[in-house]
Design a binder for these strands. Structure first.
Lengths: 206, 206
DNA sequence: TGGATATTTGGACAATGACCTAATTAACGA
DNA sequence: TCGTTAATTAGGTCATTGTCCAAATATCCA
């Protein structure tokens, strides 16, 4: 009974497409219904409110991120940045959410509550992995420095899409991701050992 | 004739207050009019559209930032960070704008156009000042590293209020600003000379 | 004072998200 | 195959939103 019906899937899929193209706030339920060739009332049959629809998208993103952001067994610089880049790709796939992040959090208490809970555990995972980098002699950093790295990464990861949307609209998606990957790599660089630097260098070339 | 009337000033002032409290999107023209003890139509006499009102606020912020972000004659670490902190205060004063940044840019072409123009010159000013820090032997950084510092500062400056609103809502305004000042100080730290480190240290203590 | 201009009023308008009911169609198990 | 449930349509109402406008009022200068 909890399996998602084809119609439901199609709604979510089309909503994500339109929301990504025009922004969540600028796509009305009527417009979405038209794109789906169905009546508005049918939309509300699956998703009583627009918030419920946004909530679903947010759940989907959270799920994909949960698969991505894991405590790595063998933390290497490469594995770490490959994880980071997958997060970037997830964010791009659900960019409508990232662009309306603050707005959504202010308005949608369900998402806000879930986000608050998840965020602490996410930061712990990042922290563990960065400590893994230290244990693997890729970086050398004390506790305070690890915390700094975590909170800086968190900030960039949350808002890179927003800034790219403001300042680097002309760049391709890949170039944007590269720019912010480089930014994070540069933040790591001063803490990197010789071994760590070797792995960071390829990320830094222009 | 271009001098702002008392009524106009009061509208701007009250709008900023309400927008900051509840968010631009959640304060209607009717609500604003009620708070001002006037009719909605009278609001539109001064500001035909809500966008025009937001645009005015945006102009005011831009003006205050223009006074703040200047090419320093004698760049010291202290002067640089004192400038940064004034920018933070400006952003906090107009935090409703910072929180709806992306939203506004997508919707308000007038603001978007102006912002695009201003941003390049702002980044140049930051760049010059950071180069000044280098010339004053506070830091040691090549061109690429200076560019990295500029773009990282730009990102943090744009979005610190948004992140604080998500993750550090329980902290006071001052504590929030301190957190992000520290973050930027830590980004500078690896490039700081002994002299530079001496000035950064006070910013880093918890 | 009289006439032009500036300001204020109150209501109308279209679009939006949400909600509702009745009727129709599709799907599926007994 | 019949009956029940799920899905969909069609139509409408409702409150709220930003916007717009014509008429009324206030202000000020010649």
């Amino acid at each position: 009974m909890e399996s998602k019906s084809p119609t439901e899937k199609k709604i979510v899929q089309t909503a994500l497409k339109l929301f990504n193209e025009s922004g969540i706030e600028y796509v009305g339920m009527r417009e979405l219904a038209t794109a789906l060739e169905m009546r508005v009332g049918n939309l509300t049959y699956y998703f009583p409110t627009k918030d419920d629809l946004v909530n679903r998208l947010s759940l989907d993103l959270a799920e994909e991120n949960s698969k991505t952001i894991v405590t790595l067994g063998q933390v290497t610089m490469k594995a770490f940045f490959s994880m980071l880049q997958q997060v970037f790709r997830n964010h791009h796939k659900y960019r409508c959410l990232m662009l309306s992040f603050v707005h959504i959090m202010q308005q949608n208490p369900i998402i806000a509550k879930r986000y608050g809970k998840i965020q602490t555990s996410r930061n712990e995972t990042w922290s563990k992995n960065i400590q893994g980098l230290r244990e693997g002699k890729f970086i050398s950093a004390d506790t305070v420095e690890v915390d700094f790295l975590v909170s800086t990464i968190a900030l960039i990861a949350r808002f890179w899409i927003s800034e790219a949307n403001l300042s680097y609209k002309n760049l391709s998606e890949e170039q944007q991701q590269q720019h912010y990957t480089r930014m994070i790599a540069r933040i790591f660089l001063p803490y990197a050992t010789a071994k760590g630097k070797r792995d960071l260098m390829p990320l830094l070339v222009l």
